[in-house]
Write a protein that binds this DNA or RNA. Structure first.
Lengths: 152, 152
DNA sequence: ATTATATATCGGCAAATATTGATATGATCT
DNA sequence: AGATCATATCAATATTTGCCGATATATAAT
């Protein structure tokens, strides 16, 4: 996989080796260390970079990101994104959303359940009707920034 | 599909019918009109609601949302989301990202290309190395709001 | 009670996406 | 030039996701 095996480059930055304290403390892999070998000629920089990478890796392993990913997944579909835009104007019942999207009832309901479980929309039952609305102002902000990203 | 066909409920809100000016002007479907029948006993409210829905539908048909959806799709994957978090701390080369994610080179490169094409990250070439960084502050803001959504 | 209505859920198929080894490209070093 | 290295792209497979008809559930009207 990694073509970056211990070789000439690696030898030159020996101060950072698999046996160094950076490796022991943070479980940083030999491959990772190895990739730092590109900083030839400056072992100090390489060491600093290894430390940084090590701390990033620790952070990544500890934090879970399933929640955020679920939110993005929910918004990452044309139908569901349109639903979010519809709901910006206020709450609507499934019937109306279905009509606006021109999708069958089962599809509409399914998309709504994904949005609901991800926390993007909230449901309010009233008799046999279900009304959906945006869960939070954060949803609108998120969409706004997504648009800003794409603008460039 | 729609069980909401012209029936007793529909008859009661006849003022809003497929032949009304709302229908003609905005291509609002009979199904949509029909779904408004739930506002029985208040044709004025129903008419207002039909107009609102009609304008929402027009808006939805005209605006394209592919850009935003592409941004969300790019962020909606655990690997790619981790990459975004990694890059919050500054630019990294593919080699380091690959090491931090513990994914093969081809996967890492592929994910980076998706992030790049969606506009979330930028690339800088330096010799044989490619350095990636977040494209914009808007990316961080977007992630922040996604987290806020999930917090509840 | 029976029927009609609004929504949710199931199930199977089709389309999209992720994964990864193999190969290609392009840069650097010897 | 030839070898090595970092990254990108290709191609085949595996997994996930969307779609929609059929069915289930629950509420309200008759």
């Amino acid at each position: 996989m990694l073509s970056c095996n211990p070789g000439p480059l690696f030898q030159k930055v020996m101060p950072i080796s698999p046996s160094s304290e950076i490796c022991r403390d943070s479980m940083i892999s030999e491959d990772a260390i190895c990739s730092l070998a590109r900083l030839i000629g400056d072992p100090d920089k390489a060491r600093a970079r290894a430390r940084k990478l090590a701390s990033l890796m620790d952070q990544i392993e500890s934090e879970d990101c399933e929640g955020e990913v679920e939110v993005f997944k929910a918004a990452a579909d044309p139908c569901r994104f349109r639903i979010l835009k519809l709901l910006k104007e206020g709450e609507l019942c499934v019937c109306e959303i279905m009509a606006a999207l021109k999708k069958p009832q089962s599809s509409t309901s399914h998309h709504l359940s994904i949005l609901r479980e991800a926390g993007l929309v909230k449901e309010r039952k009233d008799g046999k009707w279900s009304y959906y609305r945006l869960a939070d102002g954060a949803v609108i902000e998120m969409v706004k920034h997504a648009r800003a990203v794409k603008k460039k």
